[in-house]
Nucleic acid binder design. Structure first.
Lengths: 121, 121
DNA sequence: ACGACTCGTGATCGGAATGTGAAAGAGCTG
DNA sequence: CAGCTCTTTCACATTCCGATCACGAGTCGT
């Protein structure tokens, strides 16, 4: 293998994340992330609609290819798994944001720029 | 370079606020605001009639879908919640103005009248 | 100034939505 | 089969929201 990065197919960039769905590859600041198939699919669908809120049902339909049964927590579980791996790779960033009652939103936000409002103490 | 924001459905703009009711999303100077369902509904109804005074009863009817009982302070409470979040996001701006005895009015007014255009990265 | 009414604001409470860890099930490989 | 990884499901913990209350501050009429 050469060191040349040849990216075929779709490339989705969200902040320091590079997602190449067709190559089953995600890079966090250049470093490859080890994701399972489901994890990759969930992240990909979220990334395709980054900065927008995605309902659980919609996300489930896109990833699992069928309707979500009421009470199904699969989406939450995989969001959790992704958060853990993303936080391990890029601790100062947060990516998957919960919108209570609606769903999730993928946006690259660094903790540095968003935490400057608490000046007390 | 910001990617094109694909926004479907209604878009209401009030100064530096972008409200997308169908996406359950509000942007303050481009940054997403975390609002609850009720908060979003109240802000949306106010924004649909921006620069006009809206009575509590009318606002309550539109958001809650029923008649307001006398002494109900729900509208006030949610106006308060919205003010807090809007002020956190855009301290230089004031949006929800009280008209004593009548109701509230949504208008984007900047306290720094000079040159403070909101920066759009 | 006084009282009556309106509004601001923090607090509480129950229920619901979400976070989280782990067990159980399914599939794959040697 | 034995061991592994991934997926699904479950149970419990935690957080959040919405409704309401209480009290203080503000506003208006007299």
């Amino acid at each position: 293998m050469t060191a040349t990065i040849r990216s075929r197919g779709e490339l989705i960039e969200v902040g320091p994340l590079q997602i190449l769905p067709d190559e089953h590859l995600v890079r966090a600041a250049g470093r490859p992330l080890m994701l399972s198939i489901r994890e990759l699919r969930v992240l990909t669908e979220l990334a395709r609609r980054s900065d927008r809120i995605m309902g659980r049902e919609e996300l489930f339909r896109l990833v699992w290819g069928r309707e979500m049964r009421p009470g199904d927590r699969s989406v939450d579980v995989y969001v959790r798994k992704l958060r853990v791996k993303l936080c391990e790779a890029l601790p100062q960033w947060s990516f998957i944001h919960t919108h209570f009652g609606f769903g999730y939103r993928l946006s690259a936000e660094s903790s540095q720029e968003s935490n400057d409002r608490f000046t007390t103490e």
